[in-house]
Nucleic acid binder design. Structure first.
Length: 417
RNA sequence: GGAGGGGUGCCUGAGCGGUUAAAAGGGGCGGACUGUAAAUCCGCUGGCUAUGCCUACGUUGGUUCAAAUCCAACCCCCUCCA
């Protein structure tokens, strides 16, 4: 196989971003001679994106780095309807204020990966509410609906799978692909956007946009998808006990984020370095070749690089230091999550299980008790086995805090105030 | 509109009058082994300062000493027919 002509496609391929493309040769050729404008769409259902979105964010990053223009499309309009994909959970109706607040919070994440501005290669963020809100039903049916045949819509996986499993598919959901197709057409008209990127599950929706572009406006549009990233064990990435791994620090601290990457499975390190860091390929090849416990060094590099990319160099360094102290030197690090407890309360003694719950290491007092019974609870690194043990100010260590641990990895500090 | 089937804990899914805070598996948490990895093995997995109390099997009532289990109405889902 010959290598690709454009830096953009070359980068995507060698780093493992490319799953499918509607016309790789043409996109490759165009990327050589002109600035390509491409977009990825994101829903605004929460105030933060998560690890699952990171692959496409990195792809936008490389798009810009290789000389092209990224568009971040926020689904402000589609979120108002509620994303119909997934199960038939009751959709949360979000208010406009909430959606807009979500969008501005999410925007901050993109500032870490993209350069926004007015230049030809500067990224822009747009909200599909600005056109979807104004759509009128009859004109939409007449101008857009006429280009879709039910016959064809029924062949798309998103629809077909649902029908095959004999699961209900509402008319609303059925229309979702039309709205997304419409987004692509609108972006093509407004911003001369010619490429839509997304996860492999978006393939059908992307195709629809491309077809609509050709039929409604004689535009030549392209689509490109990333593979679904799973861990080597087959688990969907980014689903941890506490829930999703969020990208906003308010939801998921830089320290936890660093730890998330540090705990990558051996088999995933090379792949993740390529996808989630911007380290040069030869450096990654060297790290990927490490064997046995040396792989831990590669994991630290991964954690440092990925955290620095999202949260900045300082935050990454701090997280690395806290981790080093906690796991390798056995020193109490002040970068751990800290809970303030009034001195007076400590004087009179607090049951350990309650303190574990307050520090967030246990979800309830009962869980705290179970943790102690199971032998996973430690105070200042000393295991406590007595379920009703009380902690008082006697436990305050030389650093003026009490260090609590749940298992080997989860630590927190109690600070008397 | 008619005829059937079904709604159980984070998820899947058993139970079909008391011994049921509810089998089993998954997931999660903890322990052992390691390298803050994987695999494996073991324990735990509703809440409550707790030999007890409270809340839970779609909703609301009822039968019963006793109901997730029986009855009624209602809500929701699925299949077939129209």
């Amino acid at each position: 196989m010959s290598t690709h002509k454009s830096e953009f496609i070359q980068t995507l391929v060698e780093r493992g971003f490319l799953h499918q493309c509607t016309d790789l040769e043409t996109v490759d050729a165009r990327a050589v001679k002109e600035v390509i404008t491409a977009y990825v769409g994101y829903d605004a259902t929460a105030d933060s994106l998560h690890i699952g979105n990171l692959v496409s964010i990195m792809m936008l990053h490389w798009l810009q780095q290789t000389g092209h223009q990224p568009i971040v499309l926020m689904g402000g309009g589609t979120t108002k309807v509620g994303d119909p994909s997934g199960k038939d959970e009751t959709r949360q109706i979000l208010t406009d204020e909430k959606i807009n607040a979500n969008i501005s919070s999410i925007r901050q994440t993109f500032d870490s990966f993209l350069t926004f501005g007015d230049g030809s290669q500067d990224a822009i963020m747009v909200n599909n509410a600005s056109w979807l809100d104004e759509l009128a039903y009859i004109p939409l049916l007449r101008d857009i609906g006429r280009h879709f045949t039910i016959n064809r819509m029924l062949t798309f996986d998103s629809v077909k799978l649902r029908l095959d499993r004999e699961q209900p598919l509402t008319f609303l959901e059925f229309n979702y692909m039309i709205l997304q197709a419409y987004d692509f057409l609108e972006l093509a008209k407004r911003h001369d956007c010619t490429l839509q990127m997304g996860g492999s599950d978006q393939w059908g929706n992307i195709i629809n946009g491309i077809e609509l572009g050709r039929r409604a406006d004689e535009r030549e549009l392209y689509g490109l998808t990333t593979p679904l990233i799973t861990t080597a064990s087959g688990a969907k990435m980014g689903k941890t006990a506490a829930g999703a791994v969020w990208l906003r620090p308010e939801r998921y601290t830089p320290y936890d984020y660093w730890q998330f990457w540090r705990n990558t499975e051996d088999a995933d390190v090379g792949r993740f370095l390529k996808l989630f860091t911007t380290l040069p390929m030869d450096e990654i090849a060297r790290l990927d070749a490490l064997q046995g416990s040396e792989i831990n060094d590669a994991k630290k590099v991964l954690a440092n690089a990925a955290t620095a990319l999202l949260h900045g160099d300082d935050a990454a360094r701090e997280a690395a230091e806290t981790s080093e102290k906690t796991f390798e030197s056995g020193v109490t690090a002040d970068g751990l999550p800290t809970t303030d407890v009034p001195k007076a309360e400590l004087e009179s003694g607090i049951p350990l299980f309650a303190l574990l719950a307050r520090a967030g290491l246990a979800g309830s007092n009962g869980e705290g008790r179970r943790l102690i019974k199971g032998g996973g609870a430690r105070v200042n690194d000393i295991a406590i086995a007595e379920e009703t043990a009380e902690i008082s100010s006697d436990s305050i260590n030389d650093d003026g805090v009490i260090k609590l641990s749940a298992g080997k990895k989860r630590h927190a500090l109690i600070r008397p105030v």
